[in-house]
Each structure stands twice: as C-alpha cells, then as structure tokens.
C-alpha cells in the first residue's frame, strides 16, 4: 500500500472576491522509502501540495490518504496527532524556537509526545552525532549557521521516526555548498535509515539529486520521473 496517495486533489484559495486555484486535479502516489522532489517554479503549487500531504491544510476536493488513513475530512485534533506521530517538517527558514537550545529544539516533538527526558536526550545526542551536530547541543539557534539550523530541523523532524519527512525548499536560504551538504545528508538518511523524504525545490542543482522528480506547473502535474 502506498504511503501517500493524492486522488484528483484540487485546492482553491479565496483571494478577495476571486479564487486562486493553487492545485488542480492532482493525483500522485508516493511509497515508503522514496526520495522525491516536487519541482517547479515559484507559485506552481509545491507548498500547497506539501501542506496537504502534511495535514496542515485540507483539499477543496479530492482525497488525501496518508499511511492508509483518509485525512480529507479529519478533525483538527486528529490532524495535529497525525502531524506529531507520522510527519516530520522542515521549513525553508525560521524553523527553530529561538529561546530553546539546538538540543531542546530537536527534542521538541519527543517532548510533545510525552517521552521522558533521559530518553529524549539519548535520542537527540545520537541524532546530533549522525548529523554532524555533535558539540552544538547547547547552542541557541541564533549562534548556528543556516546549514546547521537546517540540520537541527532535520534532527527534530527525524527524532520521532515519522513515516515521512516533508521539506519545503529546505535549501532555499542556504549557499550552494551548504545546500549540497544538506542534500547529501538527507540522501544518506534515506539510504541508510530508509527515511522517506518528500521535498520541494526550484533549484536545478537540488533537483538533480532526487531519485524521483515530480514536475509541477500552475498547480498541475507536468511530469513524473
């Protein structure tokens, strides 16, 4: 069974007294263990799609299935639970809570799940070592580079071992070298730990790293390779 399934999903936003069709009649299936990029120019509907998959938003029509569960009509509370337990999020920037240290940020979802402190610590220490963040546990986000901040966001996303990690243009605010490193890291986590990644980008360099490229234009699927 597919991990993620979009069935002729349409998302329309009201904008004043007009409507913006952000995603139109879109169908897509993603399996566990994939490393998939949603590629397309700005405004093509990448963020909208990730929000739909990530239970941050619900479609105007069509169905969204996640891990065998139809979330199209789910309640807010259920959506929050799914986000906590099945999804890891990485945003373009300002991912982290500025008053918390890097380790506390990474522990955040585990804290929400009610996991006990020692266990959280151990998990995060291990993750930090894997992600090349060893020794930065007690730094505040403002004392980390952009690449380091994104890696802390990955640590947070992966801490609870979610079914899928969604990343919306994770490299957009990084320079090319940091982008490269981040992507290599994601790829490694995908290969070594089987973590499923779905991310968006409009950067050809980034897109070239993906195993599967889903191209979008004006909210429609253009190609899927």
């Amino acid at each position: 069974m597919a991990l993620i399934e979009l069935q002729s999903v349409t998302k329309i936003y009201p904008l004043g007294n007009q409507e913006v069709v952000a995603v139109k009649d879109f169908s897509l299936t993603i399996d566990a263990g994939e490393f998939c990029v949603l590629a397309g120019p700005s405004g093509s509907g990448k963020t909208t799609l990730l929000n739909l998959i990530g239970c941050l938003d619900q479609p105007t029509s069509g169905d969204v299935w996640l891990d065998g569960q139809n979330i199209t009509q789910a309640e807010q509370k259920t959506l929050a639970d799914i986000r906590l337990n099945k999804i890891g999020f990485i945003f373009q920037s300002y991912n982290l809570i500025p008053v918390l240290t890097a380790a506390e940020n990474a522990e955040f979802t585990l804290m929400l799940m009610g996991i006990e402190k020692n266990q959280r610590r151990n998990r995060v220490r291990q993750l930090f070592a894997e992600l090349g963040l060893g020794g930065l546990e007690n730094r505040k986000p403002s004392d980390l580079s952009g690449g380091q901040q994104q890696r802390v966001a990955i640590a947070r996303a992966m801490a609870a071992q979610p079914a899928v990690i969604l990343a919306d243009e994770p490299t957009a605010s990084l320079d090319s070298q940091a982008s490269e490193e981040l992507l290599e890291l994601m790829k490694r986590l995908n290969e070594e730990q089987g973590a499923t990644f779905v991310f968006s980008s409009h950067d050809p360099l980034v897109i070239s790293h993906a195993k599967r490229v889903v191209r979008l234009l004006d909210g429609r699927l253009v190609s899927d390779q």
Partner: peptide, 16 residues
C-alpha cells in the same frame, strides 16, 4: 505568529 505556526506544524495541538 510564525513560531506558533511551526509549533503547530510539528504536532502540538491548539490546546497545548
């Protein structure tokens, strides 16, 4: 506003 968005996105309930 945005930070609360992140907190909600990573799975905190509105109640929390």
């Amino acid at each position: 506003f945005r930070e609360f968005g992140v907190i909600l996105a990573v799975g905190a309930s509105a109640m929390r």
